[in-house]
Every structure is written in structure tokens, then in C-alpha cells.
Write a protein that binds this DNA or RNA. Structure first.
Lengths: 152, 152
DNA sequence: ATTTAAAAGTCAAAGAAAGTCTAAAAGGGG
DNA sequence: CCCCTTTTAGACTTTCTTTGACTTTTAAAT
């Protein structure tokens, strides 16, 4: 059973593909009706899968004729990308968030598959598990260190 | 009576056979129900029989629609090389030893400069420094995990 | 201006997985 | 037979997803 959230995520990313838009507009209730889910699930997808670190910005308007606009952000320098990503990572980051971020770096062709796998291997949950439970902190540090290299 | 764990192990390995997949996805509760055992027994089988050293990587997702993905890495030729390197690494490795090893991998053209730098970034002393002083242990785990990828 | 209705936002509870930890049971070697 | 290791079971925890009730904002209608 595929997750609804994944389906919705894929659907929205499809919209970007078609005609290679930088911006996509949706109506939350419409989309919810289309997928037969709660409107707040659309919000959930947006906040977990279309974050700044993943290269998207959301803005929206309430009220009649309201809508949600999802924009792919353009970063012109690697330094800028680095800063945004570091902000997103913060002082700790879960496996999931980290992988979402890596997927984005891959999609943007900052890293290739092999590099993707190397990095995943480095931040793997089992690998960095320690007596103290500081996995997420550790992962954040490793990620930042590596990303500095790949955006060099 | 054959051990349940062995049966489950064989079953999962069967799945790899069918169609020669490199990756197999299971649902822990499903499988447990199928074999009429505790879900945690599935976990037990995975942690004892599908370790990195045995050439597998596990990766999972909790929550609705969650699953466990088991990937087979390292086919025979490289498996041997891998074991040798792992033995060399042991349960801990200093920064210097690690870098010597990486230099060697580089000279043997198993990794390129960029990959070398990525890996160095991951095992950097500052990066993996922890409250308890388990840097070298941590580094050993990270190295082993990454090397499995680069020998793939 | 005021009201109304049509959006989107928020938050918390319920649900659906997998993970962890420990105790008990079963095997196996000496 | 006894001790040590491996296996099995189960209770409890953590993480992620889904749902729904309630709130806020705003355009349109009166």
C-alpha cells in the first residue's frame, strides 16, 4: 500500500515537470477532494516534502479564491545553497529529513548516485548509533561537513 | 524441528533469488503474521543474519505505510576484498590509519579525489567527536559502511 | 460597512507501522 | 548435568501518517 502522502508529493512534482514551471499553484480543498483525503493532509505533505532545504518555497492566500503557490527556489551560488541547507539541518537532523535533503541534492545534480550512496552510508542509523543517543546531532555534523565538500 | 529464525532467513533469501533483485521490501508485521511469530523476531533475524559484514544493508521507515528494505550489496569478488579491509579496520581506527587506507583506495582507483574528500569529511576528527570518546569506534563503523559502497 | 461564505492554517488525537529491551526458553558443548 | 549462547516472546517506545475539529483570513455579496 503506497502512502497517500507520497502519491500527493509525486503528483505535485509532476506538475512542475509538465512544461518545466518554476511555480505551481494548487487549491488545497480541490486537491484534497481529488485524492479523497483531509485537506490538512495536503498541508502535511507540503510542510514535510516541500521545505526550503528541499528547494521549495510555499506561499498562500486564504479566503475566497485562495490558493497555495509552491515555487522552486533558484540558488545562484553554491555558497547560498550551502547556507540554506545548513539552516535546514540545524543542530540535529533525522534520517528521513537527511535523505529528503540528499534526494534534492541529487535531483539538482550536485551529487551523483554513487556519492549519494556514500553519503547515505555515512549517516546510516545503525552506523552512527552510539551509547548516548546523539544520532541526530552526529548526523547533522557529518552532513554539514560533507555538504561543504560537495558544494565546493 | 528447524529453527524459526532459519526459516525466516531462508525465506528472505528466496525473495532475492526470485528475479535476482538487489533489494527486497518486507513489512515486519505482515511477515510476523505469516510465520506466526513475534514481530521482534523478524528484527532479530535481520540484525543477526543480514548485517553489513554479511553483505546486506537494512533501511526502514516507521509509521503508516512503513516497511523494511533489505539490500544486497557486494557480490562475491568484492566481498572478499571487503572482508579483508574490514579485518584491517577492526573495531576502531585512528584518523591516520584511516587516511592511509583511503590513500590506498585512491591509488588503486577505487575512489576518485572527490569521493576521497567526501569520505574524509565524514570521518573528520572534529566532526565525529562525541562526549564519550568513541571517535575511533565511530570512524571504524563509518569507514566500513562507506567502503561497502565504494567497492560495490 | 457588514455579513457571509470560501478558502487556508493549526493543533492534537488516533492509527499504523517499526524499534528496543528484557526475561524466559531452548540448545549445545564440556 | 551445568553453563553459556542463541532464540523466542512480549511489553513498551518512537516515529510517521491520517483525520477532524476548530481558527483565521479574505474576497464577494448584501
Amino acid at each position: 500500500m503506497p502512502r497517500m502522502s507520497d502519491v500527493i508529493e509525486a503528483f505535485i512534482k509532476e506538475l512542475f515537470q509538465e512544461g518545466s514551471y518554476q511555480t505551481v499553484e494548487i487549491q488545497r480543498n480541490e486537491l484534497a477532494k481529488y485524492f479523497d483525503c483531509a485537506p490538512s493532509q495536503i498541508s502535511y505533505v507540503l510542510t514535510t516534502r516541500f521545505t526550503l532545504g528541499q528547494g521549495y518555497r510555499i506561499d498562500s492566500q486564504k479566503g475566497g479564491g485562495g490558493h497555495i503557490r509552491i515555487s522552486r527556489i533558484l540558488v545562484d551560488t553554491n555558497a547560498q545553497a550551502y547556507r540554506i541547507i545548513c539552516d535546514q539541518i540545524g543542530s540535529e537532523i533525522s534520517k528521513n529529513q537527511a535523505e529528503a535533503l540528499l534526494r534534492h541534492l541529487y535531483e539538482q545534480k550536485h551529487i551523483n548516485v554513487r556519492e549519494l550512496n556514500i553519503i547515505k552510508a555515512a549517516i546510516d542509523d545503525q552506523v552512527i548509533s552510539t551509547p548516548l543517543n546523539i544520532k541526530d546531532k552526529l548526523r547533522a555534523k557529518i552532513m554539514k561537513s560533507i555538504i561543504a565538500v560537495v558544494l565546493e
